[in-house]
Design a protein around this nucleic acid. Structure first.
Length: 139
DNA sequence: GCCAACGTTGGC
DNA sequence: GCCAACGTTGGC
C-alpha cells in the first residue's frame, strides 16, 4: 500500500464536505498540474492519504482511502486531466499543523515542507506512521 | 494583502 | 528548444 497527501482549500472543498459524502466518496477533481496528476495515476485501490487543509487551517485533519482508480476528470473536457475517487476514513483527534510538521526534523523531507504548492503528493510509510501518531489516527 | 515559488504558455 | 511573460498557489 502507498500513502499520499491531498491538499484542499477548506473554502472550496473541506474535510466536512468529504465526510458528508460517506462511503460513496467523491472525485478529487480540479487538479491541473502534471506532477499531481501523475501521482494520482500511480494510486491503487485501498491506498491511504492524509486530507490537508491549506490556507486557513494549514493542518492535516483526517485520513482518506482511494476507492476508484484514476479516470478522466468529469469537470473538464480536456483529456489531459484525470482524477481518483476518495472517501473519508477517520478524523484526526488532534489536527497536525504545518508549524508542527516543520518543527519536527523527522518530517523535514516531506514534500509538504519542500514544495508547498504541490496539491497531491506522496508520503513515506515512516512519515505516515509518525503523523498518525501525532494526530491520534489509526495508522 | 503581499510576495515568493513555481508551473504553464506562447512567441521566436 | 529556449525563455520571457504571465497566472496561480499558498504561506506569512
Amino acid at each position: 500500500m502507498n500513502y499520499w497527501l491531498f491538499k484542499s482549500e477548506p473554502d472550496a472543498w473541506s474535510w466536512q464536505h468529504q465526510v458528508d459524502k460517506g462511503d460513496a466518496g467523491e472525485e478529487w477533481t480540479g487538479v491541473r498540474n502534471y506532477q499531481a496528476r501523475n501521482f494520482m495515476r500511480q494510486m491503487g485501490l485501498g491506498d491511504r492519504g492524509f486530507f490537508y487543509h491549506s490556507q486557513t487551517d494549514k493542518a492535516i485533519v483526517g485520513t482518506v482511502e482511494v476507492i476508484a482508480l484514476s479516470h478522466p476528470d468529469s469537470t473538464t473536457d480536456d483529456p489531459r486531466w484525470d482524477c481518483v475517487d476518495i472517501k473519508a476514513l477517520e478524523a484526526a483527534k488532534t489536527p497536525v499543523t504545518l508549524e508542527t510538521i516543520k518543527a519536527d526534523p523527522r518530517l523535514a523531507g516531506m514534500v509538504l515542507v519542500r514544495n508547498s504548492r504541490l496539491s497531491v503528493q506522496p508520503v513515506t510509510e515512516e512519515e505516515w506512521r509518525i503523523l498518525c501518531g501525532m494526530a491520534g489516527l489509526t495508522p
